[in-house]
Amino acid sequence: MAAGEPVPHEAAGSAGSAGSAGRAGSAWDAPEPAGRASAVRPFLLTAGRVSGSGAAPSLPVESQVVATPTGLSALDSLAFEHHDLVAACRRPQSVAELAAQLRLHLNVVRVLAGDLCTAGHLAVHVPNAKATQDISVLRRVIDGLRAVPDSRGTLRDSS
């Protein structure tokens, strides 16, 4: 797979972080703060931008996002959601996983990941749409799934 093609979101500067009590990149199984809803509206985090507007299709939920060395070294200079996103991407994560883990709206993650990608802090790997018709990919998935035992023990805490 080619290294992170920037997703052509409109990169309108990084005025995004309007500030919120963002949670630092945490482990999978961090206890979930029950019922906490963000006091900050999603559009504030994205400076009013929405994903999938304009020419760019919105980022598929399973797209893999990973921090670049530049992003990791710039981590201390990043604030709020930008910081959390890059920190959470030390290993590859899907957009959906990031949204769940950081408790951000899916579309907020899409917009911010696009910004961070443009800034060189994140690499975004958009899945190849042809994979769904690829017989060899399907066979690998089938074989992999067949190998799943009848019952799983306790779930692993990391992927």
């Binding site: 797979m1 290294a3 939920v61 399973e62 797209s63 893999q64 996002v65 990973v66 921090a67 030390r90 290993r91 590859p92 899907s94 790997h125 899945p127 190849n128 994979a131 769904t132 990919v137 998935v141 190998a147 692993r156 805490d157 990391s158």
Partner: peptide, 20 residues
């Protein structure tokens, strides 16, 4: 691939092909 618990990918650089 499956047996290792909590195995880190060899490098953070190359994510898997995601299908759903």
């Amino acid at each position: 691939a499956h047996s290792a618990t909590a195995a880190e990918p060899p490098s953070a650089g190359q994510p898997p092909l995601p299908v759903k």
